[in-house]
Simulated scan of single mutants.
Amino acid sequence: MARWFAATGLVAGLAVAAPAISARSRLPECAPGPKSTRPPAGPAGPKTPGACRAAGRILESGVRLKRPAAFTPSGYHHLGAGTSGEWSGVSGRFSIVDGSVRPQTYDFVAGRFMAKRDMGRGRISWLEAGWAETGWATPGRQHIYTFNTNTNVWQFYDQYTVRPGDQVWLDVNSDANSVWRAWLWWNNRWNLLTTQKLPIGTTAKIEQYVEVHVDASKPTQIDVPKVTVDNVQLRPAGGGPARYWREDVATLTGTEAGQQQRRGGFCLDWLTRYDTWTAGDCTPS
């Protein structure tokens, strides 16, 4: 689906973001620490041993985005898959790359998970989390970010320093009260990024995408080195342990068949449908 930019020009101002609901404050603040040295031992949640909440400045971008119910227009490229059924969460690992995003533009490259629901009348409610490189927020730097339709702004978490070549584990999930949370595995513990009471219920359709946008006012070709996504697992709607996103999960990938899919000069390669894959520039044959 498409996004549109509500800003008429690039807005450089960033503001400190307040937690969405008070439940977030029940977790201790995450102490500063290095990147994780081992994968998560289990799924993220408020009761997970060592769980904490992101501390430090959380910045909100003045560039507001929205996704109307429409096919991707020129300038947008979505590489990945979505579920046709509903799940209560998704987790997995993304590699981080340096795309040729231009400063002072609406270009961006992102690797992200999303939980969403079509609310009708052209309105979609969602929470997404991942990493992004944008033309308006510290161009040339990759950020951990979230975006939700309660605030309709990008939230950047620059206390987590990530660079090309890094890999990050992310988890987006809900609880029995329809509260959705986005988590980052950092310093060998789950760090809570945001908590949002969304009107989508306890389950939603799930997406896993590498997303590229080229500023429509300044057409160009954006180069995206190959992003690797792996260990993608879904949480069942009725509870129970997470399971790998495999071929027996009803999945939407577009109209193309085969292991490789091409979108606007970018290629997606399914290594194991649908929990291990790569996306980025097409490798010349």
Rank of each mutant, 00 (worst) to 15 (best):
residue 171 D to K: 03
residue 230 D to S: 03
residue 99 G to C: 12
residue 118 D to A: 03
residue 264 G to F: 00
residue 171 D to A: 08
residue 151 T to C: 04
residue 44 A to M: 15
residue 76 Y to E: 15
residue 90 V to Q: 02
residue 46 P to A: 04
residue 283 T to M: 10
residue 156 F to R: 03
residue 155 Q to I: 03
residue 251 T to Y: 06
residue 153 V to G: 01
residue 22 S to P: 05
residue 80 G to M: 01
residue 32 P to H: 11
residue 266 F to S: 07
residue 163 R to D: 11
residue 95 S to E: 04
residue 271 L to Y: 09
residue 35 K to A: 09
residue 104 Q to A: 12
residue 238 G to F: 05
residue 236 P to L: 02
residue 46 P to H: 07
residue 217 S to R: 12
residue 176 A to E: 15
residue 276 T to S: 11
residue 250 A to R: 04
residue 15 A to W: 15
residue 279 A to W: 05
residue 77 H to I: 04
residue 113 F to Q: 05
residue 84 S to G: 00
residue 201 G to E: 06
residue 192 L to V: 09
residue 55 A to I: 08
residue 138 T to A: 14
residue 154 W to Y: 13
residue 51 A to M: 14
residue 258 G to S: 08
residue 251 T to H: 09
residue 78 H to L: 13
residue 202 T to D: 08
residue 284 P to A: 13
residue 210 V to P: 12
residue 88 S to Q: 11
residue 29 E to A: 15
residue 203 T to S: 12
residue 264 G to A: 09
residue 20 A to T: 10
residue 275 D to M: 14
residue 124 I to F: 00
residue 16 V to Y: 07
residue 119 M to I: 08
residue 193 L to M: 14
residue 137 A to W: 03
residue 117 R to V: 15
residue 283 T to G: 11
residue 105 T to G: 09
residue 95 S to G: 10
residue 90 V to M: 06
residue 20 A to R: 00
residue 230 D to N: 03
residue 200 I to S: 04
residue 283 T to N: 09
residue 153 V to E: 03
residue 201 G to Q: 05
residue 149 T to F: 12
residue 251 T to A: 13
residue 228 T to C: 03
residue 140 G to C: 15
residue 85 G to P: 02
residue 52 C to Y: 11
residue 181 R to T: 13
residue 19 P to T: 01
residue 267 C to M: 02
residue 139 P to Y: 02
residue 83 T to F: 04
residue 178 S to G: 12
residue 25 S to H: 00
residue 131 W to R: 01
residue 211 E to I: 15
residue 89 G to M: 07
residue 85 G to N: 10
residue 64 R to F: 02
residue 256 E to Y: 14
residue 261 Q to A: 04
residue 108 F to N: 07
residue 94 F to E: 06
